[in-house]
Each structure stands twice: as C-alpha cells, then as structure tokens.
C-alpha cells in the first residue's frame, strides 16, 4: 500500500499531465461544437506545456539566474524556453482554428458538427443526382 502511494505521489506531475491530456483529447474527439473542440485541443496542448515545464524542475533548485556562486543548484531552463515556442505555436493554432470557425459559421450558419455533416451529405447526394 505504501509502495502504491509513493508510486503515485512521486509521479504527481505526470498524473496531472496524463489526466489533463486525456480530458483534452476526449473533448476534442467527443464534442460536436467546433469551439468546444478547440477548447479541448487547448487543454490537450496545455498538458504538454506542463509536462515540459515540470520536466525541467530540479529538486531544491532556484530560478536559472547567474548569481556568481558556482555551486548554485538551478532548474533546467531549456524545456521552459522550448515550451515558450510551443505556446506561440499553440496560440497561432487556436487563432487560426477560431478564424475558421467564424468562416464556417458564415458559410453554413452553424458550428455544430452533426448539422454540418447533414448539410454536406445533402450536398453530396445532390451532386450524385446530376
């Protein structure tokens, strides 16, 4: 029992990452509303940001600032820098997805996936009749 508890608590950050990741992925796949899908995608990406950030943590380490003390223990800054780039990519993706959702609303009058599928199926059936 103690083993199990240490197993869980020692990997606390990974559990959180996995839970967030699964929530995000589930929303992206299961929701029919295009905006909700984007929100799900955001949660999914955020879990990866957390994964990278917690990865760089060194126990007892401070912020990676040059203090002049050669024995200073500091956290690994590289994953943080990497994830800054990934956050920028995530923002670009979100804004593009939202812009597409706006255009889809203008063109179809709905952002519900099932209604979009019905409209597209009808369009395909109409093409087949020609």
């Amino acid at each position: 029992m103690d083993d199990l508890i240490t197993q869980i608590t020692a990997h606390y950050n990974y559990w959180m990452v996995i839970i967030l990741m699964m929530i995000g992925l589930y929303i992206t796949i299961s929701r029919g509303n295009l905006i909700k899908k984007i929100v799900g995608l955001n949660i999914f990406q955020t879990s990866v940001f957390m994964f990278y950030i917690s990865m760089g943590k060194v126990t007892g380490g401070t912020a990676p600032i040059l203090t002049g003390n050669p024995d200073e223990v500091y956290s690994n800054p590289l994953p943080h820098v990497l994830i800054l780039t990934a956050i920028v990519v995530g923002i670009a993706t979100t804004s593009l997805a939202l812009a597409l959702a706006v255009r889809i609303r203008e063109a179809y009058g709905t952002i519900e996936e099932d209604e979009l599928l019905t409209i597209e199926r009808d369009a395909e059936a109409a093409e087949d009749k020609i």
Binding site: A86, L100, A123
Partner: peptide, 30 residues
C-alpha cells in the same frame, strides 16, 4: 465551402499529430 470544414478537420488532426510529436521529443529529451 466544404474547403472550410476540410481545413478545420485537418487543423484538429494535424495539431494532435504535432502535439504527439512534441510529447515524444520531450520524452527523448528527458
């Protein structure tokens, strides 16, 4: 107009793919 929904679906799938790739990279970096 179906180009819009096609692009949207591509975006969702492509982003999931890219994010999976980043997770893999993170593990390799670890």
């Amino acid at each position: 107009r179906r180009a819009l929904t096609a692009a949207y679906n591509y975006l969702i799938m492509g982003t999931i793919g890219a994010t999976f790739f980043v997770i893999g990279l993170g593990l390799l970096y670890m």
